[in-house]
Amino acid sequence: MNKKKSFLSNLLAAPHILWSIIFIVVPLFVVVYYAFTNAEGDFTLENIFELKAYIPTFLLSLWYGLLSTLICFIIAYPFAYILSQFSANSQRVMMMLIMLPMWMNLLIRTYSWMLILERNGILNKVLDIFGLASENGFLNSGGAVVLGMVYNYLPYMILPIYTIMSKLDPSVVAAAQDLGGNRFDVLRRVVFPLSLPGVVSGITMVFVPSVSTFYISQKLGGGSFMLIGDAIESQFQSANNFNLGASLSLVLMVLILISMAVMNKFTDSDDTGGAIV
């Protein structure tokens, strides 16, 4: 009976396992293989040494990633908090509005920003009325790249924070008020610590794609803000140097893993009580 059952469950799990092997495990090995070989397929560390030239790119990517994550958090947290106090119906409508842009393709959304930000774009035209127009428009700047990231990834910050906020036991909040906490005390001492798990997953979901983004920086940065994602893309697409591209990818992966580990460490110690609900 037991044996039969485990055979059955194995059978059911098989497609998933197969999928994971073909599309996750094998590609990972391929990346590692390319990263440590040269064009002839011989083992080498050259690709890794070559990365020195990309240190500024890595740093810029990390910086932009952190910056957009921080901005997303600053916008998303109060938004999610206030949203969770609304009536159930308004909450649904608002969530709908937040999700709506995500139904559109990233390319289209990014192109729209190009149209808004360029020299003859909508923003500049509006500002022109007040005599505030910028001579070169706002496109092709670091700010435009960060704006693009924030715009694209903001929902991924709002959603997990909002989810945990909406599940907060209202009587715990009432207890904090009852014990003498004003709005700020309640937020700082109860709501925020209890919403940390949501904050952590929000940060993860924004930071990872921000660090490795490539398309947004090309379109909104005008090519002058090459991020690590762009570097990887160009190695595979134009330079045809799979080996260097793979080593770049590998290092990026390791960087992200380290960031996540640090993040989890930070919450584990703070969160021994575990997330409620």
Binding site: D169, A174, A175, D178, L179, G181, R189, L194, G273, I276
Partner: peptide, 28 residues
């Protein structure tokens, strides 16, 4: 407002702060 009243409440489901230990709950 509640936080300025000289009354305190024991809630139906206790409503303790799950992220704080016993000492910090009482010291809140």
């Amino acid at each position: 407002p509640p936080h300025k009243r000289q009354v305190n409440t024991i809630f139906q489901r206790y409503a303790l702060f799950p992220h704080l230990n016993v000492f910090e709950n009482i010291a809140f």
